[in-house]
Write a protein that binds this DNA or RNA. Structure first.
Length: 298
DNA sequence: CGGTTTTGACCCGCGC
DNA sequence: GCGCGGGTCAAAACCG
């Protein structure tokens, strides 16, 4: 029974790492720690610079806005008058097609009567970049459409096609598609109403060559923003529908909106997490912080 | 054969 | 009232 006293059955939970490693390992770890801390410091500085740049840009934007109160008032007034919203599309090539590219017929489109109708039916515009050789007025949005008319409008030599949802009359959604008068490779699709059914085909909805990001409102917000992958992001904002000289400002406001910034943040996070280099740097930075805290405690 | 597209005719609101 | 222009209808053509 005495030999039990020779055994130390206690658990030494207060393990000191320095006991487990020899001197060379310790020095290597210290060097690594220094390197990681330096990198962490560098990343922190970069972050600080980015924040400073952001603040400076934001201040410039606010200053610009304060210097142009008239334009701001016009935008505000238009927002009050119109319940509709338009959309701008960012093509996969990251070309932002803002509302100023819409044809002049779009101006006519937002006449007084339709302003009233906008209360009943949600109207939005989607810009889709197509191949120059593509002469069809087909905007693949995942829904099935039946063409019921085509018309050549006054201010645009390109005909305007009229579509109804194939589920009509149960689904009241209509769509008008016309090439932009300024850039005929851009299709302008104007949606009226919202689908009351699911999208027949989500695969067809967003072919890789035709994916776009829609700003402002689009019809069927939920269906477009869900199950379509990260390439289609819908921000349901209330924006003026008419192309105006203030479109640049409007676009700026859109970009400055919380929704867009949230989208940007998600996209950045998505891109960064896909970057193994960033992962490694982040892990190093975090480990640096953790080890730093640990060593401070030690 | 059924669904879709085409296309000319028609409707309707708006401005003059 | 009339003309204009956008939107819709509906018959014929087309297609799978």
């Amino acid at each position: 029974m005495e030999y039990f006293s020779l055994l130390d059955t206690s658990l030494d939970l207060n393990i000191n790492p320095t006991r487990l490693i020899d001197e060379t390992q310790t020095s290597a770890l210290v060097e690594e720690l220094k390197r990681v801390n330096a990198e962490n410091k560098r990343l922190t500085e970069m972050l600080t610079v980015m924040c400073e740049n952001y603040t400076a840009l934001r201040n410039q934007l606010l200053e610009y806005r304060s210097k142009n109160p008239v334009a701001e008032q016009v935008v505000s007034r238009k927002r009050k008058v119109e319940s509709t919203a338009t959309a701008a599309t960012i093509h996969p090539t990251n070309n932002i097609v803002n509302n100023s590219e819409s044809s002049s017929t779009d101006e006519e489109y937002s006449c007084k009567k339709e302003r009233e109708e906008h209360v009943k039916a949600k109207i939005s515009r989607v810009y889709v970049k197509t191949e120059a050789s593509d002469t069809s007025l087909v905007v693949k949005d995942g829904y099935q459409w039946r063409k019921y008319g085509q018309k050549v409008t006054k201010d645009n030599p390109c005909p305007r096609a009229y579509f109804k949802c194939s589920f009509a009359p149960s689904c009241p959604v209509k769509k008008k598609v016309q090439r932009s008068a300024e850039d005929q490779s851009v299709l302008v699709a104007t949606y009226e109403g919202e689908h009351n059914h699911l999208r027949p085909s989500t695969l067809e909805a967003m072919p890789s060559s035709d994916r776009c990001m829609t700003l402002n409102s689009v019809p069927c917000t939920t269906s477009l923003s869900s199950s379509s992958g990260p390439t289609t992001i819908t921000l349901d904002l209330t924006k003026p529908s008419n192309p105006t000289p203030n479109d640049a400002k409007t676009a700026t406001q859109t970009v400055n909106s919380p929704e867009f910034q949230q989208f940007l943040a998600k996209q950045m996070a998505y891109s960064l997490t896909k970057d193994p280099g960033f992962k490694a740097a982040l892990a190093a930075a975090m480990s640096g912080r953790i080890v730093d805290n640990q060593t401070a405690k030690w």
